[in-house]
Design a protein around this nucleic acid. Structure first.
Length: 319
DNA sequence: CTGATTACCTGAATGC
DNA sequence: TGCATTCAGGTAATCA
């Protein structure tokens, strides 16, 4: 499933294939994939037709394209963009570049025709089996925090409305560890719940949360108000590193025809240390000659994988 | 504010 | 074989 590294790979692919092109036609194949566009599929299409893609921005797993609307003045006298095409891949979403002659994918949901460009496919397609993801047009609003937005080619002091409540992600150069730690300490909750809270730090999903906790040797239920600064740094650094590892692994093929969103990135073919390893030897303990089998618990209605030896559960105020 | 629950979806895997 | 159930996941809305 697409996680932050995969979304970043998509963003880079879109920069290569879509930046500066104009949307010449819109085909909503399945209206459920634009259900977050409140005014309906026709309004969605009407907003996009004739619009030009000015930038590709990501924060956490939200990805959006600020648009120069149809008929707007371009160049030096251009006004700042007011709207953006927002995309969230959900669990199974893909953005693919395709030639016009290519047959529809089984789960094709939205087709965008793009202005011709030499050697480049004519369509950007949104394909999504499970429909947790979607596209919609949204307003750009000023950011409340100083500095540019999330990762972008040319950072804008504007942010998509639906991403305004999302915290910066660990790969964002403007991510503030100090702010994160202060807010983390003020919560009365478990560490994994905090890591998954997109308002505190964005981009971390269930898999990378487990991987980061394993690398940091911390338990998912560790109360956030007991975390020492070094421990919080450890888990944040681990999250950043595991995502950078995945980005490196998944970023190798984005120069292909596809904007590259293969549901499973290269990283998932590599070995994860925690996620999905129930009953298997903890790799770190094994390296020390200790026998410890990874366990799976249900937490927040989803699976959490831990090593009982090097990630002991906190109890009675002792950790 | 926090957390618990549910809706949103499909297809693979499992159970009987 | 076939039919029913379970599970996976991110986000948002709702409720306690």
């Amino acid at each position: 499933m697409p996680e932050l590294p995969e979304v970043e790979v998509v963003r880079r692919g879109l920069v290569s294939w879509v930046l500066g092109r104009t949307i010449t036609g819109v085909d909503v194949v399945d209206p459920r994939s634009v259900r977050r566009h409140a005014l309906g599929p026709e309004d969605f299409a009407g907003n996009l037709e004739g619009a030009t893609v000015l930038d590709i921005v990501r924060r956490g797993k939200f990805l959006w394209m600020p648009l120069q609307e149809a008929g707007a003045v371009a160049g030096e006298d251009a006004e700042p963009p007011k709207v953006a095409l927002m995309a969230h891949l959900g669990m199974s979403g893909q953005l693919l570049m395709q030639d016009n002659a290519e047959p529809d994918e089984k789960h094709l949901k939205v087709r965008l025709w793009l202005s011709p460009r030499d050697g480049m496919p004519g369509q950007l397609r949104f394909v999504d089996q499970r429909i947790f993801g979607g596209l919609f047009v949204t307003s750009l609003v000023p950011t409340d925090d100083a500095g540019p937005g999330g990762l972008a080619e040319k950072p804008l002091p504007l942010i998509a409305e639906e991403a305004a409540h999302i915290a910066r992600d660990p790969l964002d150069p403007h991510f503030s560890f100090g702010d994160f730690y202060r807010r983390l300490r003020s919560r009365k909750t478990g560490l994994k719940r905090a890591l998954l809270d997109q308002g505190l730090v964005s981009g971390i999903g269930n898999i990378y949360a487990d991987e980061a906790l394993w690398r940091a040797k911390l338990h998912y239920a560790r109360p956030t108000d007991t975390l020492r600064r070094a421990e919080a740094e450890r888990v944040l650094t681990a999250a950043r590193e595991v995502m950078l590892d995945a980005l490196e692994a998944g970023g190798t093929s984005f120069d292909s025809l596809y904007v590259n969103v293969n549901g499973a990135s290269g990283y998932f073919e590599r070995s994860l240390d925690a996620y999905g390893r129930e009953g298997e030897q903890c790799r770190r303990c094994a390296a020390s000659g200790i026998v410890s089998l990874m366990r799976r618990d249900m937490f927040m209605n989803r699976s959490s994988y831990t090593c009982p030896v090097c990630q002991p559960r906190p109890r009675n105020g002792r950790w």
